[in-house]
Structures are given as structure tokens and as C-alpha cells.
Simulated assay, not measured.
Amino acid sequence: MSDPDPGLIEAMNKFFGGAATTLIAALAGRLMYHAGEVRAKRRPIWSRDLIWELPIAVGMALIGDGVGEYLDVSNTQQVAIVAVLSYLGPRGAGALLEKWVDRRNG
């Protein structure tokens, strides 16, 4: 018997498929970042710069998917990792990785 209330991510997986759900999470992460930049008046709402958010979102989705596989987490957790890494972007993810490596090496 299936769970009657599977949750948002599982519902999206059933409706769109796993890859599309991961990309949607990555795009949502980049849009959250962009919204913060717009609120801080560092970017306009609509500009050509939004085009550059697409490859960042796809790249961070690939990285987040790999991190989730490496950590052997559930699909729901993996989608959350993708959204967080996409929000952080390459620089934020790099800073997070550096802190993790420094902490691990003492």
C-alpha cells in the first residue's frame, strides 16, 4: 500500500520524474538567491544576467546529485542538497568545502 500523503518532493518525482525534480530544485535555489540580490538592490528583477543562472543551476544540480550519491542519502534529502548548493552557488559551495576540509584536517 502506498503512502496517502507522500510529500511535495515525492509528488514531484511521480509527476515530473527524478531528473526534472532535481532541476526544479536547482532553479528554485538560484531564484531564491536572485530574489535576495533584487531585495538588496544589487540586481534588477529582469535582466540578461538571469541567463547565466541557468548553467549555474544545472552545474550545481549535477554536483548536488553527486554529493547526495556519495553521502548515500534518500531522494528527498538529495533534492534538498541540490537546492541548498544551488542557492550557495559555486563560490558558496567552494567556501563550504574549504571549511569542511580545514575542519577535517585539524
Rank of each mutant, 00 (worst) to 15 (best):
M1Q: 03
D3Q: 08
D3R: 03
P4F: 07
D5E: 12
D5I: 15
D5H: 10
D5F: 15
P6E: 11
P6V: 13
G7Y: 12
G7S: 08
L8M: 12
L8C: 07
L8Y: 10
E10Q: 13
E10N: 13
E10P: 06
E10W: 09
M12N: 09
N13Y: 06
K14L: 04
F15T: 04
F15K: 03
F16L: 09
G17A: 08
A19Q: 13
A20W: 15
T21F: 03
T21R: 06
T21P: 02
T22E: 10
T22R: 03
L23T: 03
I24E: 08
A25F: 09
A25L: 07
L27S: 09
L27G: 10
L27K: 01
G29M: 13
G29F: 13
R30A: 15
R30K: 15
L31T: 12
L31D: 03
M32H: 05
M32R: 01
H34A: 14
A35Q: 06
A35E: 04
G36L: 11
R39L: 15
R39H: 11
R42L: 02
P44D: 13
I45P: 08
S47K: 12
S47H: 14
D49K: 09
I51A: 10
I51L: 11
E53T: 13
E53L: 15
E53V: 07
L54W: 09
L54M: 12
P55C: 01
P55H: 03
P55D: 07
P55M: 04
P55V: 05
I56P: 01
I56H: 08
A57W: 06
V58H: 02
A61I: 01
L62S: 07
I63F: 04
I63M: 01
I63Q: 00
I63T: 01
D65M: 04
D65L: 05
G66C: 09
G66Q: 13
V67A: 09
V67H: 01
G68C: 08
G68L: 07
E69W: 15
Y70A: 14
Y70K: 11
L71I: 05
D72M: 14
V73F: 01
S74L: 05
N75S: 14
N75E: 14
T76P: 00
T76F: 02
T76S: 06
Q78T: 04
V79G: 00
V79Y: 02
V79I: 11
A80H: 03
A80V: 07
A80T: 07
A80Y: 04
I81V: 02
V82R: 00
V82A: 00
A83I: 03
A83R: 01
L85R: 00
L85C: 04
L85G: 00
S86D: 06
S86E: 06
Y87V: 06
Y87G: 00
Y87C: 08
L88S: 06
L88G: 06
L88A: 10
P90T: 05
G92H: 09
G92W: 11
G92E: 08
A93I: 09
A93L: 09
A93H: 02
G94K: 01
A95N: 06
A95S: 06
A95P: 01
L96Q: 04
L97T: 15
L97S: 14
E98V: 14
W100R: 10
W100G: 05
W100D: 04
V101G: 01
V101C: 08
V101K: 13
D102C: 05
R104W: 15
R104K: 15
G106F: 11
